[in-house]
C-alpha cells in the first residue's frame, strides 16, 4: 500500500515536472503563449486523471505528448474547423517587424517555425526540442515513421531556406558562391 502511494506521488511529481518541456513544444506548435499554457494545463490535468492507465512508467514522457497532441487536435477542431491538418503548403516569407539583436534571432526562428505547415511543426518540435526518436514521434502523433521522416525533411528544408535567406540579408551578403564539384 505504502509503495503504491509513493509511486502515485512520484508519478504526480514527474507529471508536474514536465510542464516546462510540454510548454516549449506547445508553444512551437501553436505560436501563442496563452494558448500553449492552457494546452499544457489541460494535458497535465488529463495526465493526472488517467495516470492509472499508464502501463509502462518509462513511456510517461511520450504518453504526455500524445495527450498534448490530442488536446491540440481537439482545440483545432473546435476553433479552426477549416484548418487542413495535412496542409503541405510552402511556408510563407514572414519577418518580424521590430526584433533586435538576440531577440531578433529568436523571433526569426519562431516566425519561420510558425510559417511551417502545422503537421511539420509538430514533428520538428518533438524531434528537435524533445529529442524523441522517429518511432516515438510516430507513436505520439499516430502516423507512420515514413510520414515522420518526410515531414521532418520538408520542415527543415523550409526552415533552412527561410533562415539562411534572413542570415545572408542581415549580413549584407551577396548571393553566395556555389561550389562546383
Amino acid at each position: 500500500m505504502i509503495s503504491k502511494i509513493c509511486a502515485k506521488s512520484g508519478l504526480r511529481k514527474e507529471i508536474a515536472a514536465s510542464r516546462v518541456r510540454l510548454y516549449r513544444v506547445a508553444l512551437a506548435w501553436c505560436g501563442d503563449r496563452m494558448l500553449a499554457d492552457d494546452l499544457v494545463q489541460e494535458t497535465l490535468s488529463l495526465g493526472l486523471q488517467k495516470a492509472h492507465q499508464l502501463r509502462e512508467r518509462d513511456r510517461l514522457n511520450a504518453w504526455l505528448y500524445s495527450i498534448l497532441s490530442n488536446c491540440w487536435k481537439q482545440h483545432l477542431r473546435s476553433y479552426r474547423p477549416h484548418e487542413d491538418l495535412d496542409d503541405d503548403r510552402p511556408s510563407g516569407d514572414l519577418e518580424p517587424d521590430s526584433a533586435v539583436g538576440q531577440m531578433e534571432v529568436v523571433a526569426r526562428v519562431r516566425c519561420a517555425v510558425g510559417g511551417l505547415p502545422l503537421e511539420q511543426r509538430k514533428v520538428l518540435a518533438l524531434v528537435d526540442l524533445e529529442g524523441f526518436s522517429y518511432g516515438d514521434v510516430a507513436s505520439i502523433l499516430e502516423i507512420p515513421i515514413g510520414t515522420v521522416m518526410s515531414r521532418l525533411y520538408r520542415a527543415r528544408k523550409s526552415l533552412i531556406n527561410l533562415l539562411e535567406k534572413d542570415s545572408h540579408e542581415s549580413q549584407g551578403h551577396a548571393t553566395p558562391i556555389r561550389r562546383v564539384k
Binding site: G31, R33, L39, M103, E104, G114
Partner: peptide, 12 residues
C-alpha cells in the same frame, strides 16, 4: 483561455 483563439504571437 482557449476561447481567445490562436493569435499569431511571435513575441521574443
Amino acid at each position: 483561455r482557449l476561447g481567445t483563439g490562436i493569435a499569431a504571437s511571435f513575441m521574443a
